[in-house]
């Protein structure tokens, strides 16, 4: 240990100590404000509030309640934006044709076998994150991304051929993606449709009982709250995101043989 190392050690220790002192003394301002703002307080108070259902989402997770209930329309358009971007990706590569038998090597047999064992576990944990989106951190988008990892793993470990042979073609993924989005749409207008049919007042994106609208999504399933629409939103969103991200990944990792025709066509358009 020479003099240089001692100086470095002492100066790092000093830096940590001084920074800690500055933060402790409030030199950087309060780390978190002492008082909650009114808006935050009202969200925290009403996210799960069985005594004031008119303003409540009956969800234990404030973030999910804000994302899918209080600001539901905003989130709906966010989901649509992701959909449009995926439509854009497949439009950019239009004319490609998925083929099997181009390369079948992938990684070693050890990795393949381990991935096989992992695949149901990845799927079910993604589903679990989506199902519990209104109870714990997570939700449809997170669960869907989790599931999309499986396709990335399969196509790297086994090759894209394997995925296509198993029937996960991009056109089928697009159908799944659209089904998910239709599910989100159906959930958001479900109560409105029921209201129109029965002649009762109801809103778009209505979740629980609201002022002057007595319809409500089921607030409980067995022994846990469902957050009304939130459970359905999360499940459909998971389907939509999983299929959408998988589709984008496949399209971006197409092999040369598969896009050759598309490229020729592109030149022809020029």
């Amino acid at each position: 240990m020479n003099f240089r190392e001692v100086v470095i050690a002492v100066s790092i220790a000093l830096m940590v100590l001084l920074l800690a002192y500055v933060i402790e003394a409030g030199g950087l301002g309060p780390i978190a404000p002492q008082r909650l703002r009114e808006l935050a307080a009202s969200y925290l108070l009403n996210t799960y509030n069985p005594w004031n259902i008119i303003q409540s989402a009956q969800s234990l997770e404030a973030v999910t309640a804000i994302v899918w209930d209080y600001r539901g329309i905003d989130t709906f358009f966010e989901t649509s934006v992701l959909f449009i971007s995926i439509v854009g990706v497949s439009l950019l590569f239009r004319g490609y044709r998925e083929k099997a038998g181009i390369s079948n090597r992938g990684l070693s047999e050890i990795v393949k076998t381990s991935t096989k064992i992992l695949s149901p576990l990845i799927l079910i944990s993604g589903l679990s994150i989506a199902i519990h989106g209104h109870l714990t951190p997570g939700g449809g988008f997170q669960g869907g991304s989790f599931i999309a990892v499986l396709l990335v793993l399969l196509s790297v470990v086994f090759s894209l051929d394997f995925v296509v042979e198993r029937g996960l073609s991009t056109s089928r993924l697009l159908v799944l993606r659209s089904l998910g989005l239709l599910g989100v749409l159906a959930t958001s207008v479900a109560l409105l449709v029921v209201g129109l049919l029965t002649g009762v007042n109801a809103y778009i994106f209505q979740n629980m009982v609201r002022e002057g609208a007595s319809l409500s999504m089921p607030p409980w399933f067995l022994d846990r709250p469902t957050g009304g629409t939130l459970l359905f939103f999360n499940v459909f969103e998971a389907l939509a995101v999983a299929a959408g991200l998988s589709l984008a990944f496949i399209v971006l990792s197409l092999r040369r043989e598969e896009v050759e025709e598309a490229l020729e066509k592109g030149e022809w358009y020029e």
């Binding site: 079910i124 589903l127 679990s128 199902i131 519990h132 399933f221 067995l222 022994d223 846990r224 469902t226």
Partner: peptide, 10 residues
């Protein structure tokens, strides 16, 4: 969790 909600949906 072993709540009925999770067990049934799971």
């Amino acid at each position: 969790t072993t709540s009925l909600f999770s067990l049934v949906l799971g």
